[in-house]
Design a protein around this nucleic acid. Structure first.
Lengths: 125, 125
DNA sequence: GTCTTGTATCGACAGTTGTCGATACAAGAG
DNA sequence: CTCTTGTATCGACAACTGTCGATACAAGAC
């Protein structure tokens, strides 16, 4: 079984600079950020996202790294369990693709006001 | 000594779905995401960012959590060393504020195409 | 069926991380 | 000076994480 992992609840989304995160939101979001907290996983994700057709076979992903195949497999599982990528076996190969909604959620969360220099923030808004 | 921690190099920035991350970029970015990979730190960051004036005293930050004061101090240091917040002592209190450029960098990186359904991506772009 | 190739799981191990209590440092009050 | 309060550092410990080699599973070729 490889299918996308449950999770993916409806959580948060407006910039975190607006209002404090609740405990539950923080827990779910931290799980996603944790999946992004390893350089190999970050490169895997960008490799998948930028691959032609928006998806990549594992066979495309093991070459560019100095780590073993089981390690790549482990990292792909972490990305999948965090809800950042989907995966499917098609014949001999297993394909991975990015789930754009997940990235968008994190991106929106981190959106910061242009230049909130504290002075500006105090002034108005 | 509390001032901002070196680092903060010029790195990356266009969406990671465009082209694969280089090893160095991935290393620096993963350090920032690692700082976001703990629920307490995420809540700390949002608490700081959404606090009036764009900054918060540590004394504002210890109350809302169930963890000890040294633990909060540790998490604040991690956020600071990742280049996500700045800090300064003013008299008795120490203030923390978010560094918006850092959040913006991560936000931009995660920006995903609206609906890249693989089909669309293949079609044109 | 056997053989080969692609991918996942297992078990182990070193390194890292979150947490705490104890303690040290910083700065103002008296 | 001493005392009090706010914050950081230290040292320890359990829990988690990244990595590996060995191995199992999946699917096609023969």
């Amino acid at each position: 079984m490889i299918g996308p992992v449950t999770g993916q609840g409806t959580v948060c989304c407006s910039p975190m600079v607006r209002e404090p995160l609740g405990e539950e939101d923080a827990a779910e979001l931290s799980r996603m950020f944790k999946a992004l907290s390893d350089p190999v996983r970050l490169r895997l994700l960008s490799l998948i996202a930028s691959h032609e057709g928006g998806e990549a076979c594992v066979c495309d992903l093991t070459g560019p790294f100095d780590v073993s195949q089981p390690t790549i497999s482990h990292h792909l599982r972490v990305l999948r369990e965090a809800g950042l990528v989907g995966a499917e076996r098609r014949g001999t190969w297993v394909y991975y693709w990015v789930l754009p909604a997940a990235l968008a959620k994190l991106s929106a969360l981190l959106q910061a006001p242009a230049v909130p220099t504290a002075a500006e923030a105090k002034a108005g808004a």
